[in-house]
Design a binder for these strands. Structure first.
Lengths: 197, 197, 197, 197
DNA sequence: TATGAATGAGAATTCATTCAT
DNA sequence: AATGAATGAATTCTCATTCAT
């Protein structure tokens, strides 16, 4: 039964996300997954393994989900719009995952966790490439792509984390619109005139 | 000697930030602070107390630091500019604190940690008020202030976390400019025309 | 299929001998015997049962083997010679068994393991009887039979344990001769003159 | 208090010897030493560390004790006599140590435990040298020194293990005399005539 | 009969906290 | 005030044994 492995992962995700990885005991995970403590170790070699699994799989899934959505979209601006929309929805729907990534990936220094480093960059790299393309095509302003990608990611994920547990769909849409406006047109009423180097 | 208390706090901050709160032992903190393990408990009742201290004090300090900077500044846009600048510099200079907040405040669900809740909102509230004022004055577009405040915070802090350990001052300035441009004027070359409700 | 039972015993013996009983898992035994872990329990009720089986059977086999060899031999000295020769060869050929006996039988206090007690004495008793007969017949000097039997056993088995894994037959013969000389004629060049009580 | 370290070692020795290392829990050691379980780890890094300590120290002590005794003795035969006497008394007085060595040193294959290898040879080497000297001086017959040393060791230690817990001193003396006779003059009434190569 | 997934009792080890000095 | 030795609760992980297939 591979359903058991999934049950364990799901249980782990939920508890990790609410208490943090380090405060979670294998016992708790097993109980929530309704399996024996020993069974946990039939499916995962160590407690850390579930974490790794959850993080890589979670980010991979989101990455694939989003890539599929934007593949057919023309134009970098439109692509970025879709990314904001999808990342927000994904993290909103998988708030536990988002919290886990924030805690265990962004909350670690690169040196102390090579996993964090790896996981972090996989998704960001895609964002960055979209931004670079947009700049080359003249659709986007010439800003440092890496900074832009990170800022976009940070903006969306922290907003997702702030949303109360189950806001109505309209609330979600309003938040999304706010982020889109902010990101694409800026916060000011009058457009700044900037002379770029 | 109150210097000892500060030494302990500083030591704790550094180790918490690089290993995470839960993976840090009181022994390690004491060693780094060059005091005996028992001495730790002369100054703090529990290990968690240092964390609480660091988080509240850290965010308070940043809040006060920034409030002082913007007090004399006229105009909401100018104020926000200053906030972005100062928060980025503060988090860059205190990357440990930033990481700690990300881990222990944003990485927790509100329910599981009332402290997180409290700490989180104290700084955000100020941001939000500046945004609200700006909207009322017509300087800022009419976007949801809470979302904008959170987005701004997330953007800046994740960018701060991404900066390699000791970038040159010019690098810092370039990142700052990118964020400013992004936030105030948006990412697109052509201003979106949006009809607002 | 009773071959399976033997496969399991053989596998257990080898692993017990090299890692010790307590460090050996049923899993390892099953793997080495090329059966499923559950199958182990078709043939043995508990892990300890295999150990008991191996020890009693091993010592019994050696006992029978040796008794058969000496049955037709006349004279106690000749009998003892044969015993030294055969025990050395048996333990050399079954070094695993010898190590197991040393570990699990001699390495336990009598109280803690009645099995040890029983197993130990079965073979020693035979030795002792041969010695007693020899003394009565005037072939052997009047030394305490129990001590002599134990000494002989200890001498032979520790030497067997010391022999590198696969010494040539001539090496084995040289060792055997050394033991025979030592035991029968003593270590000194000049015969000690001892007045016996 | 370094007495505590000794209490722990003594407790460990006793329990290891009666139940075997692997069956002994740190809990049991701590209880018998009348300290908390955690205290055990103040003095020893791991459970294995006590074992190592006991084995090396035990054999070293015996080695030194015996070397001191024989240093002033002239003649190899006399030296060997003293060795038999002292090893027997030492192992009789420290039966726990003897059992521990038998179990954990002789009961392991060399490959599986480099410690065993090392510990085993340290004492045997000394024995062997005495034998070699005796042969060179013509006091001892020309037998393989390594085999003789091992045989002597095995003989004495297994006899020591067999002695009921607290035999009278006269019993001990009788056993000692038996071993001496056996080792030096051989078991037969008539001296074997052997032509040596 | 053969199997291996499931399980929980149990073991080593860690660590926050206490307390006597 | 400062210290570190002492402690036991708590945690991860192992493994003999059971049992449904």
């Amino acid at each position: 039964m591979d359903a058991k492995r999934e049950r364990i992962k799901q249980a782990a995700l939920e508890i990790f996300s609410s208490q943090g990885y380090a405060n979670t005991t294998v016992q708790q995970i097993a109980e929530r997954a309704r399996v024996g403590k020993g069974t946990f170790y039939t499916y995962f070699a160590t407690k850390e393994d579930v974490l790794t699994d959850l993080l890589t799989e979670g980010l991979n899934n989101m990455g694939q989900h989003i890539e599929k959505k934007i593949r057919t979209i023309q134009g970098s601006v439109a692509k970025l719009r879709a990314i904001v929309r999808e990342q927000l929805r994904y993290f909103h729907e998988h708030q536990s995952l988002c919290r886990l990534i924030t805690r265990e990936v962004w909350g670690h220094s690169d040196q102390s966790s090579p996993l964090a480093q790896r996981v972090r960059s996989s998704y960001l790299k895609m964002l960055q490439e979209v931004v670079e393309k947009g700049i080359k095509d003249g659709e986007l302003r010439s800003l440092d792509p890496q900074t832009v990608a990170t800022a976009l990611y940070g903006m969306v994920s922290m907003v997702a984390l702030s949303m109360k547990d189950l806001p109505s769909d309209t609330a979600l849409e309003r938040v999304e619109m706010t982020l889109q406006e902010l990101l694409f047109s800026g916060i000011t009423t009058s457009r700044m005139i900037t002379v770029e180097a």
